[in-house]
């Protein structure tokens, strides 16, 4: 299972003279089981990018391949693709509509043609995996807190048994604890289900802690793609495009400039602490 974009360009208003390019010749391959962070500021093309993964947007030029097959070929089953590449949008309010949580999560499997029992089984399984307590299953999704709604929304996509989960800013509007809880849960899903995950985010700090690969988007281009360590080493260039590396990166670089023997590629607080303690001879 893999998703691959080959030289994908997406442009708005192609019929008029004023063409705006949202994606400019992006080539990107996400192999099976990878945990990727997609970072960029608003309007960088990151949301447009992920909507190409499950065929919600059609490239103006270029190809999107799922498992090596062109998803825009004649007769390709897009509904099946959407069950395989689950996309969770930023605001859970945009998808919750049923009278209770369980029925809402059943919506996806039902659309795929599963029987009522199968749907419920899949839904219960998904709800358990996102860590929502059983007492909430019969409540209206609108009564839940922001973090709980987010979990129901993720479960709603997870219930379709996707091979890849794409989340568009899953932590927007959550408080710090809520943010950590959701990200921890996503990491757990990655580990227990072995599915690949792509998270769209603004936060370099969060991504440094969780993902194995960072893709940076800027004005429809993809200037950086690599491990967090590699990407953050370009912290000066990141700054120029309006993104900042984690504070840790700055601290380590300044300390190194001042002559301390610290490793500048530390990306998390723990790594930084170890490195500084070592340099100080503790």
């Amino acid at each position: 299972m893999s998703i691959e974009l080959k030289n994908v360009t997406y442009a708005y208003g192609t019929e008029s003279a004023y063409e705006t390019v949202a994606l400019a010749g992006i080539s990107l391959k996400i192999p099976d089981g990878q945990f990727v962070g997609i970072i960029g500021h608003t309007g960088s093309g990151k949301s447009t990018l992920v909507q190409h993964f499950n065929g919600l947007m059609r490239p103006t030029r270029g190809q999107v391949l799922f498992d090596g097959e062109d998803i825009w070929a004649e007769g390709y089953d897009l509904k099946h693709l959407r069950s395989q590449v689950g996309l969770v949008f930023q605001y859970p309010e945009h998808q919750l509509f049923e009278t209770d949580v369980l029925s809402d999560v059943c919506f996806g499997p039902k659309n795929l043609g599963f029987s009522q029992e199968e749907c419920e089984e899949l839904a219960l399984d998904a709800l358990r995996q996102v860590g929502l307590k059983e007492k909430y299953y019969k409540l209206s999704p609108f009564e839940l807190s922001g973090g709980q709604k987010r979990r129901v929304a993720i479960a709603g996509v997870l219930a379709m048994n996707p091979k890849m989960l794409v989340l568009d800013e899953p932590t927007a509007g959550l408080d710090p604890k809520g943010r950590d809880d959701i990200l921890d849960k996503i990491k757990e899903l990655h580990e227990t289900r072995g599915i690949s995950i792509a998270i769209v985010s603004h936060s370099m700090e969060d991504m440094a802690k969780y993902v194995e690969r960072i893709v940076v988007m800027n004005h429809g281009h993809m200037p950086f793609d690599g491990t967090p360590r590699e990407v953050f080493s370009h912290y000066r260039k990141l700054e120029k495009i309006g993104l900042a590396a984690p504070q840790i990166t700055y601290i380590m670089h300044v300390l190194a400039e001042k002559g301390m023997a610290v490793s500048t590629d530390a990306t998390t607080v723990e790594e930084a602490k170890e490195s500084i303690l070592k340099a100080l001879g503790h």
Binding site: D175, P176, K177, Q247, I251, V269, A272, I276
Partner: peptide, 10 residues
Amino acid sequence: RLDVPQVTLL
């Protein structure tokens, strides 16, 4: 349920 900036935490 709150957090501190990375510098402060470090």
